[in-house]
Design a protein around this nucleic acid. Structure first.
Lengths: 180, 180, 180, 180
DNA sequence: TATGAATGAGGTTTCATTCAT
DNA sequence: CATGAATGAAACCTCATTCAT
């Protein structure tokens, strides 16, 4: 729609994101990206060097945006508040950058994608453990692992449009953890 | 080790399974499969027609084996017993056919893989709903959705060797659902 | 002419030799080779792996042929005889495998080409030194270096069709070294 | 070191000379030249039109410099003196413009390079013939051809750093032609 | 003068697949 | 049943070059 105000580089980024997230990395040719972006194939390589570097750029840029946007989201007020935030994080993240998270889900086996996601999630883990501890849970580490599993699937399904009752599920979880 | 007693076709199947599950479908060439199987590339096409049909064969065969092996697993004795079975299903499945489930996880976006998995899981869903109903849960559908989410991630992580405390997690879940 | 009796692989070899020797390695595309050989481009890679390996094959095969053909040429009867042989070697070599030596000249900067040629020439050097010693030359090493320089240019020019009086030059050299 | 006092055009010339002479013409991209020169790729085309014209410029400029520098070198005093000059020409030339002669050697198949070199050498040939005639050689033309062959290899090897005993060889040649 | 942005043409290589034997 | 020889199509990428600024 606002095609004309996007630079060619931005068009490439947009179409690469779209195609990678829909068809996967291997099944998206640089030619297809170029055509969808209305740009010469060579320009992709001028801007990003090679196909993999384009993907890496997408992922880096995505996490950068996510981090600046959700900085406040990670702040710890009290244990219950934090767990509530965690439970609702998937919906918020995906609502903000739906295509990026779809990409992240589809490419979860790409080494860089994997690494970045782990790096993004690592700090969270420790805080969840702390929260469960404060709330007197018997096995905070295991509780954390379980919650992270749920969260992990929540954003993946949501990004894929496979989650019909995201909000209800969040509420159910909040009840189960007695956060409400 | 028992290379010599495997037919050429079986060798192809074995190596295709290995490679697809490790590197994905698109990143595994028929040449690589043939080489690993010690077989001519052409033989793959004699036996399976084309690359996609080989994958379809793998998936069908996998689910066939799973179904015959775990028929009893699905039988409904009582609600608590069934939920317990469901919670422990991932570990059992993956223990039985680790590579198949790794494949299934890696190829979760392949249309046939997806379809087969849904078909495999559909019958279960209804029974879980029933179990939750019998146990007096307020929102059995939502509870089912949540449990299925957990189960889904359990087998995926387990198949990928990313689950360290599978058993403890199962026990934790059983406690949470008051099954123990 | 005898196109029909040449295998496709041999046709590739023949045309690669022709084109590389005429236009150089970098300026000869694999497509051009394939077209001249009446063969698909992919076949080049099936047979040789990559373009450089094709060149290496050409060079190796060339020296193999040269060595088997000129084994006797290198035998030492007496000093004068050997020097005479050396002086006439260029003409003989080029007469036998003109295109190969043209290739060798054009590609003298390619590392493998260079290496193979040095390896081919090294044994000769020592024997020439010995011959000059036996003939009482004051500085056999330097005399050898000079003779090798002449020989080196002789085959290069001859391979390039730039030597009009090869035989006369050989005779002149034989006179200068008092071999006649 | 004196980077700052070189104009951009001169930097291009310098780096093109370096790269062409080291890697050859086809294997040197205009991008590489621009990067080494710290200059935009487009500037090469502003200054020289196209890649080939840049090479032609290099060659022309090289011979121009060589000619102005070695004008006296070609003057004929007497036959022996001239032959002595010819024998020592390679060392002198290469000492003066080592990279240019390396370029000339590497690009000996480029039509313009070839043509210029022939044009540069042609006048010399006639004078060498005259010198050999004056010295009473039986076959002055053939003697000239041989001497030119030696000279040709001398500067090529010297330019390539493959000549260890240039001076000794020159002396040896002077002795052989009785010039000392 | 100098550049950054852009591209068409072409390069090498890989791929899934076919076919004669 | 099994293969070796062969290929068309397409992949990623590089190149010399142009043009607006």
């Amino acid at each position: 729609m606002k095609d004309s105000v996007l630079s060619r580089k931005e068009k490439i980024i947009r179409e690469a994101l779209n195609l990678f997230s829909e068809q996967g990395y291997a099944d998206t040719s640089t030619k297809a990206i170029a055509q969808n972006a209305g740009v010469s194939e060579a320009l992709i390589f001028k801007h990003f060097g090679n196909k993999d570097a384009l993907l890496v750029h997408l992922i880096k840029a995505g996490y950068r945006k996510v981090l600046t946007h959700h900085k406040g989201m990670m702040t710890y007020v009290d244990s219950k508040d934090f767990l509530r935030k965690m439970i609702n994080l998937p919906s918020k993240l995906v609502a903000d950058e739906p295509i990026f998270w779809k990409l992240q889900e589809r490419l979860s086996h790409h080494p860089f994608s994997k690494q970045q996601h782990e790096q993004f999630m690592k700090p969270v883990q420790a805080i969840i453990v702390r929260a469960f501890k404060e709330l007197g849970y018997k096995n905070p580490d295991l509780e954390t692992e379980l919650l992270l599993i749920v969260i992990d699937t929540l954003w993946k399904k949501e990004a894929n449009g496979e989650l019909d009752h995201a909000m209800e599920l969040a509420i159910l979880l909040e009840q189960k953890y007695d956060l409400i």
